[in-house]
Design a protein around this nucleic acid. Sequence first.
DNA 1: GTCTATACCTTGATAGAC
DNA 2: GTCTATCAAGGTATAGAC
Lengths: 198, 198
Amino acid sequence: MFTVPFPARLSASSIIDAAWILLQEGGQDALNMRALAAALGVRPASLYRHFENREALVRALAERGVLELQDGIARATQGKGPRDALWAAASTYLNYARNHPHAYALMLFGDDSAQTSAQGQSAAKALWNTLLKLVGDLSGDPDDTDQAVAFWTFLHGAAMLDRQGLYGASGPRGGLDVGLTALLNHMETAGGSGDPSS
Amino acid sequence: MFTVPFPARLSASSIIDAAWILLQEGGQDALNMRALAAALGVRPASLYRHFENREALVRALAERGVLELQDGIARATQGKGPRDALWAAASTYLNYARNHPHAYALMLFGDDSAQTSAQGQSAAKALWNTLLKLVGDLSGDPDDTDQAVAFWTFLHGAAMLDRQGLYGASGPRGGLDVGLTALLNHMETAGGSGDPSS
DNA sequence: GTCTATACCTTGATAGAC
DNA sequence: GTCTATCAAGGTATAGAC
């Protein structure tokens, strides 16, 4: 008579926590409703009382990842000069992507890993604004989209190549330092986007 | 009596051609054995006489993509000076990724889009050698791995962000030009990897 | 709110007739 | 070499009892 379902065994946050672990350890494939239910000691059907479907769950995970990464960047850049802040942001970004490869992919690619996804757009916008401000602090142009695009492009490329192990056994070596140095130098010397006429 | 299976309706190359179209139009999801058989006017089981399994087919497609891209770069850079050649290579690379987004992903990510894949490694190595040589021609160091890593990182990042539509409605704007300019300038001025002691 | 039970779908792949 | 027929495995999701 004390096996009535109170208090609830599940909650949105406990599900997200378990799902996050599954994602972290086995990627998207490991993140399925059966495995998730098993990890929580519950039946798959029970999950649908807390999340309408798998997509909603994935959305919540992506949001969590973006907030974590943004928070990490904010903390790493606090109190630093423009150039140091950008360097710290890059380092934080790449470390996060390396330590949470599946979450990083989930944030930017969403569910399918093809085409544009809603949470990908949202995550991208959030990260974009974060990086844009930092870049503006160095280049002097508070809306230096071109330099910010270049910076983000480089970071994302490094995150993805690293994630797939495509740098090979020797890793990126000094390539990331070299690239970042080149981009930051260019920001400092070039000032704005390079086309003041527009 | 003339419906005997000669001459064969299928061949490895006709299958690859059809698979390439499916991949191009619908991505990996559209590339399944049923759809492929239907596109060829044949039953799914018949495909297994020509490819041991789906993975072998994907491997062949990845190989085709790498060759196409390498060939395009070779042609675009031919007869150009070092800096122009690198610029042309970048342009060709990004155009290829934009025009064949699914094939590009297949080449570098392989089947699953998670973890390291065999054809990903192979494709990466092939592209790497192509880019390494071009970079060496500009920087002066024939084995300037750091600069080549930076260059490739940027290209891959641009290809992936573009592919996912994450640059937003306004696109990368001048960001790609800015980034490439920064990297090429750095190659010219910095000479080697920057650590002649190693 | 969780359970049992199951429907339903989409895959890749195979056996054996022709 | 292609066919019919079918299996096995994996997934999301729902109805209705408790």
